[in-house]
Amino acid sequence: MINVAGIEITPELVAFGGLATVAALAAIGVVAFNNAVRSALCLVVNFFLLAVLYFTLNAELLGISQVIVYTGAIMVLFLFVIMLLNLGAPQILHEKWDFKRPAGIVLALVFAGLIAGQILPSLMSASRPVSNPALDAYGSPQAIGRTLFSTYVFPFEAVSILLLIGIVGSILLAKRRI
């Protein structure tokens, strides 16, 4: 095994590195592109790669629902709205340059530095998953279903009410005449 700075370079780590690099570049693209459609596309790529990363974490049901919910529904909605606005007035989605840009970047870097300096080092020791074959199927539909409808049934119902309110609210906003 090759060691770089005390970390074993495994094939899995290389694969993760590739995925994570593309995901990070896509995340930068979301902010950097002036064109909103391209930002949305970058976000789609990012979410899709996150779904792949969820698979690598054995969370298969969540990985697939990430694709269904985010890539398949939410981002399509975003694109839909961007295109609708573009159709109405192509000029309105124009970015301008001002002092917020450097200020925002500096603030975010400080934030990232704080977390990376304080929290990550203490977690270096817990760097390997506990290999327990009994727990490896924790992301399967069966396991999630059992937990969701027993221990977490109250939050589940609360979320369903939230979604209902969301539906009613969006209809209320969208309809001109009720």
Binding site: V44, E60, L61, I64, S65, V67, I68, T71, G72, A73, V76, L79, S140, P141
Partner: peptide, 18 residues
Amino acid sequence: DVNIGILYVLAISSLGVY
């Protein structure tokens, strides 16, 4: 033959809109 086959079908077919 994954154990989330139907969900996979739904997920990928929802990408067709792009």
